[in-house]
């Protein structure tokens, strides 16, 4: 999922062509989302994929929610709640900050935010790649179910809470209670971890993990140059809380 080359405006297949630009100062968000949903299911070749530009988002909610199409969607500015939620296939770029619930329950595709993301970004997401160039706030990747998340800065407290699968890469620091009650998601943190959540432990970095991390950093295209893999540590589940054990009653 690297960035696609810029395409000239589509000429045929009018039903599958979204208008190129939405100015959300004038157009309601629903109009944008309806246009995106009208393309649902179309699996265009890259050469034919729709290019949508959204300007003046003004922190509005639900921008580009529920897209299910091969499209490049660029949003110039800050967005509110639930931007790019439930995304499938689309490549969504936010040139600003994102409010709570960014890419919540994303299934596939790529969502990239050039600024910071508020709380619970990537919550319950099943797939795709979520890249935050800045910081992500509390509960980043909560209950993640297969998504890959790469954060250029720090993440807040209770991140990867009950994370089931997928990978979370943090190039800065992690807040309190990282990976509390984590299942099989894998976490890589370059900076300090303020505290571990229940059942989350540090694990050795082996060749396969270095390879996985290298690949994720390449896909994320953070543009920060080569990061030293030796600076990263891996965290995951101690697998002590999976099944009820009476000895652990105090930890549930």
């Amino acid at each position: 999922m690297t960035s696609r080359p810029q395409q000239p405006k589509q000429t045929k297949q009018t039903k599958q062509t979204a208008p190129t630009e939405f100015d959300l100062r004038d157009a309601p968000v629903r109009e944008l989302n309806r246009a995106l949903h009208a393309l649902t299911g179309s699996r265009l070749s890259h050469s034919a994929c729709a290019t949508v530009r959204v300007v003046n988002p003004g922190g509005k909610h639900n921008i580009a929610v529920g897209a299910d199409v091969d499209a490049d969607i660029a949003i110039d500015g800050h967005v509110g709640y639930y931007c790019a939620a439930m995304n499938q296939h689309a490549n969504i770029v936010v040139r600003g900050n994102a409010g709570p619930g960014l890419a919540e329950n994303m299934m596939s595709g790529k969502v990239m935010v050039q600024g910071d993301a508020s709380q619970y970004c990537g919550a319950t997401a099943h797939g795709g790649l979520l890249v935050i160039h800045g910081n992500a706030a509390a509960r980043c990747g909560i209950s993640m179910k297969g998504v890959d998340i790469v954060v250029g800065g720090d993440i807040g407290h209770m991140s990867a809470f009950m994370a089931q699968s997928g990978r979370l890469v943090v190039c800065g620091d992690a807040g309190d209670a990282l990976g509390d009650s984590i299942y099989e998601a894998r976490i890589y943190v370059r900076g300090k971890v303020r505290s571990h959540g229940a059942d989350c432990v540090e694990k050795p970095m082996q060749a396969e993990h270095r390879q996985e991390l290298t690949q994720l950093l390449q896909q994320a295209e953070l543009g920060v140059g080569e990061l030293n893999l030796d600076d990263f540590r891996r965290y995951g589940s101690a697998r002590e809380l999976y099944h009820f054990k009476t000895d652990n009653a105090g930890s549930y």
Binding site: G58, G59, K60, H61, H78, G80, Y81, N97, G99
Partner: peptide
């Protein structure tokens, strides 16, 4: 400024 959401600050 302080707000519950950015859209107020916008």
């Amino acid at each position: 400024a302080m707000a519950s959401e950015y859209r107020a600050i916008a």
